[in-house]
Each structure stands twice: as C-alpha cells, then as structure tokens.
C-alpha cells in the first residue's frame, strides 16, 4: 500500500503541485491526469524516489520510501519515457540484464516466452537498433512480465503502441490487478481495464 500525504513538488522555482493526498492499495488502478507540463512525470518520478519532494511524505506499507530505499525498489518497477534498453544488445540480452539487476534469475526460455507474449516472435535475437519504436516499447514492457513486483509505475506506457498492443497492455494490467498488484499510470490514450474501477487523480 502506497500512501502520499501533503506532497509538493518543485521544478526549478516553479511549484508544480502541492497538498497532494492519495493512497493506493492492492488491486487498485490509479490514473494520473493532467495537461502537458502539469507535473505528471515529476509526480511519478517522485513516487519512485528519483526526485526528493519539496514537502510531504511517501509511505510504502507504512514506512518512508527514502528510508526503505532498496527494499522499496525490490517491490516496484518504473517504466519511464525512455525505454531503458540498449541499442547494441538484442531483446533477450536487454531483458536478461534488467531482470538480473532486479535480482531475478531467469533462463532464456522464460525471456523468449515473455517476448512472444508481447508479440515479438522472431525478433528475439535482433539488435534492438533495427526494431521499430513500437517494438522497442514492447521489449521494455516485457520487463513487466518478467519481474515479479507488486507496484507498477508506468509513464505513458502506450506511447508508440499499436491497437493490438494497447489491448495486450489492458490485459496485462488486468492480470496484475487480479494478482493483488497496484498500477499507477499516466496516459493520453483511453485505457480501460474490464471489471476494475480506475481512480483518477487530476493535476492542474
């Protein structure tokens, strides 16, 4: 369970938001809404602990995330604007390293299975450099399948994805929520997960 109280965030001298209070618990889906520049990415990065908030607290299971540090990171995954994959490596190598850093021991079969589920059959061993934008995004999203954590923080996960991949994402989020997971995301595209009520948080 993630609880946010009185959160305020600055970008330079500019106050992005203040007095933000919300919480999310197992099986819940939270969409952060707002216009461009309203601080959605800053909020998500603050929730990850990458940005130190100007004010307020972020608590994971009752403890401050900056105190938990690595223990918090072991339970969350963040997908940012950039895909965080290396052009020189192929999809399997990229995922093996990401999973390795997260402390998951995986064999190549599991990685290939995840890539196939993401619709990348036959692309597993190609250097990521030759894949399209959308395919790169799918490789990055495959991390969600491989690394088993309860909190997903997704910044514009649907960028560059085609209709079938958007459908797949909805399915993945649905499965994750059914397994008592939590998802916080931003998007400008419609994303509806069947049978789950989306909480919305609007930044102005």
């Amino acid at each position: 369970m993630l609880e946010i109280s009185n959160l305020a965030c600055n970008r330079g001298d500019h106050l992005l938001f203040s007095d933000l209070n919300f919480s999310i618990s197992a099986g819940q889906l939270l969409q952060v809404q707002g216009a461009n520049g309203s601080g959605k990415t800053s909020l998500l990065r603050t929730l990850c602990g990458l940005v130190i908030p100007a004010m307020g607290e972020i608590k994971w299971r009752g403890q401050d995330i900056h105190e938990l540090d690595e223990k918090f990171y072991a339970e969350m995954i963040y997908l940012g604007h950039s895909n965080a994959i290396k052009d020189e490596l192929n999809a399997v190598e990229n995922l093996r390293i990401s999973a390795g850093l997260a402390g998951c021991k995986l064999d190549d079969k599991q990685i290939i299975a995840a890539l196939r589920r993401m619709g990348l059959r036959g692309r597993e061993m190609l250097p990521v450099r030759v894949l399209s934008q959308g395919q790169c995004r799918r490789v990055a999203l495959a991390r969600l399948l491989l690394i088993n954590v309860s909190l997903w923080i997704l910044d514009e996960p649907l960028t560059a994805l085609d209709v079938s991949a958007v459908g797949l994402m909805q399915e993945l989020i649905g499965e994750h929520l059914a397994n008592k997971g939590m998802v916080i995301y931003t998007t400008h595209q419609p994303l509806e997960v069947a049978g789950v009520e989306t909480q919305r948080l609007a930044l102005s």
Partner: peptide, 12 residues
C-alpha cells in the same frame, strides 16, 4: 537511453 535511471531503481 534511461538505463542509468533503471540502475538507480534496482534493489541493489
């Protein structure tokens, strides 16, 4: 390419 950010968020 964002991999440094992911290294910071790894539980290591």
């Amino acid at each position: 390419d964002g991999t440094l950010e992911q290294m910071m968020l790894a539980p290591q």
